[in-house]
Structures are given as C-alpha cells and as structure tokens.
Design a protein around this nucleic acid. Sequence first.
DNA 1: TATTATACTGTATATATATTCAGTATTTAT
DNA 2: ATAAATACTGAATATATATACAGTATAATA
Lengths: 206, 206
Amino acid sequence: MKEITSQQQRVLDCIQIYLNKTGFPPTRADICREFGFKSPNSAETHLRALEKKGFISIESGASRGISIIGNSDLSSNMDNNYPVIGLVAAGSPTLAEENIENKISCPDDFFSSSFDYFLKVKGLSMKDAGIMEDDLVAVKKTHDVKNGDIVIARIDDEVTIKFLNRKSPKIVELEPANDDFQNIVVDLEHEDFTIEGKSVGLLRRN
Amino acid sequence: MKEITSQQQRVLDCIQIYLNKTGFPPTRADICREFGFKSPNSAETHLRALEKKGFISIESGASRGISIIGNSDLSSNMDNNYPVIGLVAAGSPTLAEENIENKISCPDDFFSSSFDYFLKVKGLSMKDAGIMEDDLVAVKKTHDVKNGDIVIARIDDEVTIKFLNRKSPKIVELEPANDDFQNIVVDLEHEDFTIEGKSVGLLRRN
DNA sequence: TATTATACTGTATATATATTCAGTATTTAT
DNA sequence: ATAAATACTGAATATATATACAGTATAATA
C-alpha cells in the first residue's frame, strides 16, 4: 500500500462519510459536488489513484461500485443477525418465521464454532450444566455429534436439549442435568428421532 | 413497522448479503438475478413494499439508492473489544494489562446494560445460579447495586463473585449459589471491602 | 362480494452514471 | 532535465439503472 496524498485522503474520507450517511457509495458527480469540482473526471482520477494504491476497489461498469478495502474485511468481522427461537414443546423448532422471537446481532466468530440460531431454553432440566430458564443456547445445525455433547433433539414433535448418550445403534439416551428429571430412552426403530444440532455456547442476558 | 412477508424477508436478506459481499446495494437487476425473476418490476415492487413497511429507504432517482433502516449508523452499531480478566485470588482484578487474558469483540448493546469487561470465573461457588467454571461474566463497573444482585466484590485482596445481601449499614453478606460453600460475612468497619461491579450477563464458549 | 395486497412477466424509456479522450498546470521523483 | 504523478476543466457517449405502464394470477381482507 503506497502512501496516500492529503487530497486523496480527503476523497477517501468523503466516501466513508457518504457511506455512513446514506448507506451506499457516492457517484463521481456526488464527489464533485462535495469538493466543488467542475468535472466528473476530477473524481474519476482520484478514485483510480485510490484504487491503484489499494485503498478502494471499483467494480467496472457498476454505478456506485466503490468499496473501501479496509471495510471489506469489516463485513466478515461484521455482526450477523441470529434468530432467537423458542423451545416449542410441539411443532418445528426450525427457522420457521412464526418461531422467531427476535434477532440478536452478534459476530460470526463469537463462539468456538459457527452457529445458526439461539434457542431460548424453557425449564431447568439442564440446570446442573449451568443452563437456566430463558438462557440462550447457541445452536449449530449439525448431525456431527458425539456422546457427551449437549444436543438439541426432536422426538416425534417434542423438542428438548439434553446430553447425548448413544447406547447402541438402536438406542439413544438423552440425559438431563438435573436429578429431578429422568433419562429419556429413545428406540430409534419405533420413534421419530432427529438431532437438530448441538450447543456450541451460551448467552445469558440478565 | 408492519409485518413482513417471507418473500419480502428474503429480498431484505438478499440486500444485506449483497451489501456485505460488495460494499454497495444491489440494483433491481441484481436482485432479479439472485431470485431468477424475469422482470425488473418484480424487484421494484418488493422494494416499494419494504419501503412502505419501513424496512428500507429508497433514494429517488439514485442508482443503488437502497439503505436498510437500522443499519443507518453502522459505526455506532460496531463491535468493541472487551477485555477478559481472570478472577485472580490476590491482586487487582482491574483492567491492569497483566490481568487481561485476551479480548472479545462484541456489540456494545449486547447485554441489557452496558458493561466494561468479561470476568473469567474460577470455581463453582455460583453453580446453582448457572455460573460454571470458565464462564465469562459480563461485568459493569458500578456501585449501584442492590440485594440479590450478582456482584464482583473484593475483600482485602480476595476477589469473588457472589449474591449481595446488605444486612445492615455495617454488615454485608456475600452468598454463594452452592450448598458446599458458606456465606461470607463482611464487617465493613474492620475489613477492606469494595464492590467492583455487578454481573449484567453471561457468556459461555464450549 | 368487492377490494386490496402480494407476486410475478414483459416492454419501454428517460436519465443517472461510468468512462474515455483531449487539454492545462503544478509538483514530485529519477 | 525529463518523466511521471498529482490535480484539475470540459465535452462526449455508451450503458447501467430506475421507473412507469400494461397485464396475469392468487391470497388475504373487509
């Protein structure tokens, strides 16, 4: 990255300010207006210089096709809106709209693994694992689970969060973390059993 | 803000994804390409519906003049780096550099209240409150605490996290959430006692 | 039942916009 | 001393783009 001139810095700042203000990049004419330039080529040459020096990228042919390079990796660092889903006793816990309670803005790399949604926990069956009522469990949709994982599972239409313990090819036990609750034994041959995903983290908002 | 239809939500998501990817909003044609629409008016009508419902704003006449409402001030929505501090048995739990284990990027409005740092919990004294070993408690530095709050307190050089119970002007009890632990009774007249802050949230990364 | 909103295709067009070419002048490297 | 980069004006143009108008069809609403 070569050194930037003061005027080019001003143009770069102008682009950023325009972006913050409007949500989209300026045109050549917009930049001219901002600086009092009388020719769109004044903006053009500055943009080309900024591109050459690696401060911005310009999509050829596209209107307002300017993106600031430092901001580009910012988008990967950017927050994403993750849906919060209630632990519905019956029905799909999937990302069906009617189940989305609200959304939480959160960095993509917030937990050890990527995740897909937050599950709002009902009940205290996982109390001894430190999962309390209304806690938000970060759930990664996956079938790659092993014994001891905290999984979100569905038996018929019942959705629960429990420790997984695969006893045999045909028998799965779902173990709560609370003495007041009993293990759930699932016979894979006679019951409709699905692993929705597993817990990769937890969020509690007092 | 009226309710959004599923298709409109998909278009809104598409705009956000396009923004993250390119740094500028899509054209009507871009949206059509993404969905396989054969007429630019398909995108147009969705955009107008989203505008009417207050999800986006459209600058008349401007190309790519779409901005998602709520994204308006991205800089204030930006993440901040919050330090993670170990619960050192002796010494200052303050933000001294030697105590900062690492930093976590997190939105400022992530918890109900603003906060100052994450405290990495050692031990299981707050187990029944769902606070486990190595959990990260979001701590707000404040003296505005009341009975029942989970506070981070220092007695002489010992730092703990407990429930607060102010018995009298001179006596404070710090109550663990674990039967294996005992209440800590602090005599304010004879012991050096400080409230470092209180818990406003919790983060667990498996 | 009529009406409005949703969800599209298809065509057309004014204009917003990028981009090139031709200059001028000043400053900075080589 | 000469080339290259910077910093502009001014004009021209192909095309990218928003946007209106004319339809069709279905679902929701009143």
